[in-house]
């Protein structure tokens, strides 16, 4: 057990130090696939969060509740549903998204939309209510007021985006069901880890895990650093 860990750390250092080209390309693919997923989810997630946080209407609580409940959706379940939808014999088969990186991105973006919506809406709601009054009394239009409130909750929103990216980056279910773990095409860090574990290459998969965690931690670290300055 202990030896496996030492071996894993050793392998991780070698992989990073020597810049193993395949591991590097897998990591880049992970970053870009999940980055695009995050971007997509922000595209519709942030407006939803804004709408939920800044306006009041009937059924608002219901929608909030729905997104809160969806926070815990099992990735494999979502992956399976999307697989059936995107399969060539499924209703969305014509788009030919199964086993493509774009397919993973779309799947992950759906997975993390509840995180973007719930976290960003909470961040905006927790902004001092006075800010809204202040913007209004200084003559801001409704849109300008919303912008000011959003600006006040910038860090909360950024943290929501980072959290959703991390979730997409570290999830396995969607990536393996939609992507199929095809080498050079849809293999990402998590599916590699699953494959290497299944292969019995425990040390190598822990090494990949270390790389994955380094990326997630450094992202969080950079954000926190920027936040302080």
């Amino acid at each position: 057990m202990f030896e496996t860990f030492i071996e894993a750390i050793h392998q991780a250092i070698i992989l990073i130090w020597k810049g193993d080209p395949e591991v590097f390309s897998i990591a880049i693919r992970s970053l870009s696939v999940s980055g695009l997923a995050t971007l997509l989810s922000c595209l519709w997630g942030l407006p939803i969060a804004l709408g939920l946080a800044l306006s009041s209407f009937r059924g608002k609580k219901l929608i909030r509740g729905f997104f809160n409940a969806m926070l815990g959706v099992p990735t494999v379940a979502l992956g399976l549903i999307l697989y059936l939808l995107l399969s060539k014999s499924g209703p969305l088969g014509i788009f030919q998204l199964l086993y493509t990186p774009l397919g993973i991105s779309i799947g992950q973006s759906l997975l993390i939309t509840p995180i973007v919506v719930s976290f960003a809406a909470s961040a905006i709601e927790s902004t001092d209510i006075g800010v809204k009054d202040l913007a209004r009394t200084l003559g801001a239009s409704r849109f300008q007021t919303d912008l000011a409130v959003m600006h006040e909750s910038t860090w909360g929103i950024i943290l929501a985006i980072v959290a959703s990216f991390s979730r997409a980056f570290a999830e396995l279910g969607v990536a393996i069901m939609i992507g199929g773990n095809i080498r050079y095409v849809t293999r990402v860090l998590t599916t590699s880890i699953a494959l290497e574990t299944a292969r019995g290459e425990i040390a190598f998969s822990i090494a990949l895990t270390i790389i994955l965690m380094i990326i997630v931690f450094s992202l969080t670290f950079i954000i926190n650093f920027l936040r302080r300055t």
């Binding site: 001092d128 006075g130 800010v131 009054d133 202040l134 209004r136 009394t137 003559g139 000011a148």
Partner: peptide, 14 residues
């Protein structure tokens, strides 16, 4: 809102 502006008791800063 266009012609009047209020300075709050507890100063709120952006």
């Amino acid at each position: 809102r266009k012609i009047a502006t209020l300075v709050f008791q507890k100063s709120i800063m952006f």
